[in-house]
Nucleic acid binder design. Structure first.
Lengths: 147, 147
DNA sequence: CTGCTTGCAAACCCTTTGCAGTCCC
DNA sequence: GGGACTGCAAAGGGTTTGCAAGCAG
């Protein structure tokens, strides 16, 4: 399940970070957005309602949230440095729309067999993986065919 | 199978690009390296034997090679903008060492079932995916335990 | 109150671009 | 020989840092 505003706030405070007005706005914007966001687009969203919040604060907050794994960093489809809200509990992956950057989470995939095979064959100690799918969401498919 | 020097040269020329002394050196360095390389580390390698080759040429050559899919861009484990030599024929994935950045390719994985399920459930038209594993190669595991 | 947090501006990368000379084919 | 390619230097863009003022707890 995706993190709620309350959960994010609690986790930040539990780790000794203050829950400032600016951080609340940034968290709100990330959670409210269906899309993945770059620092710049996130700043634009936050800036609408809170014109006094600077881009620097966005960077610093993203850094903290990534550190605490409250947000996920996306890579697929060309653009790095895009973020989406994280999940509590489950390990999950992302399906990202190349058109509108919207993100759908999914969990049902198990790599344990593959990881075991890879470990046996390569001798690597596997610490993690990165899996993303990209394509077009239903809405963007319609837009495209409608043109 | 990974691209050979000859294959890379042929493909470049087939696409109307000239095979200059600089490009030969860059291709040589990428193929000779077991590791994934950033533009800067690649430049350092090339620069040793050919001090007259500029970083700008590295960027321009990487751009062309990525465009022609002669090299693969890596994302996992934190650092983006790292490249490794591509493969002819097979679709493949990478296993990257977080210690020394060495790359091992693997092919045996089939996402068609997963992709079908995702398409059914989300309505996405899936165009591609990104899968990387990261961990420690045998050599770096030894170094770590030896410390 | 105290120390974390913020905003501004400047510094700092990394990457791209303009241009004149060079070189592959 | 001609057009693609290169290197230099400069511009460009995104990200980080120093510092004084502000604010959460």
């Amino acid at each position: 399940m995706k993190f709620t505003r309350k959960e994010v706030g609690t986790i930040l405070q539990r780790h000794g970070y203050k829950l400032t007005r600016q951080r609340r706005s940034i968290i709100e914007a990330i959670i409210a957005s269906q899309d993945s966001l770059t620092p710049a687009t996130l700043h634009a969203k936050v800036h609408r309602d809170h014109p006094d919040i600077g881009l620097v604060t966005i960077y610093r907050t993203l850094e903290i949230m990534a550190e605490l794994e409250l947000i996920c960093e996306l890579h697929g489809g060309g653009a790095c440095h895009r973020y989406t809200i994280g999940q509590s509990e489950q390990h999950h992956h992302h399906l990202v729309c190349s058109g509108c950057n919207s993100v759908t989470d999914f969990t049902r995939h198990n790599f344990s067999t593959l990881e075991q095979n890879l470990t046996q064959q390569s001798g690597f100690r596997i610490d993690g993986h990165l899996l993303e799918f990209f394509g077009l969401c239903p809405t963007c498919q319609e837009k495209q065919s409608g043109t």
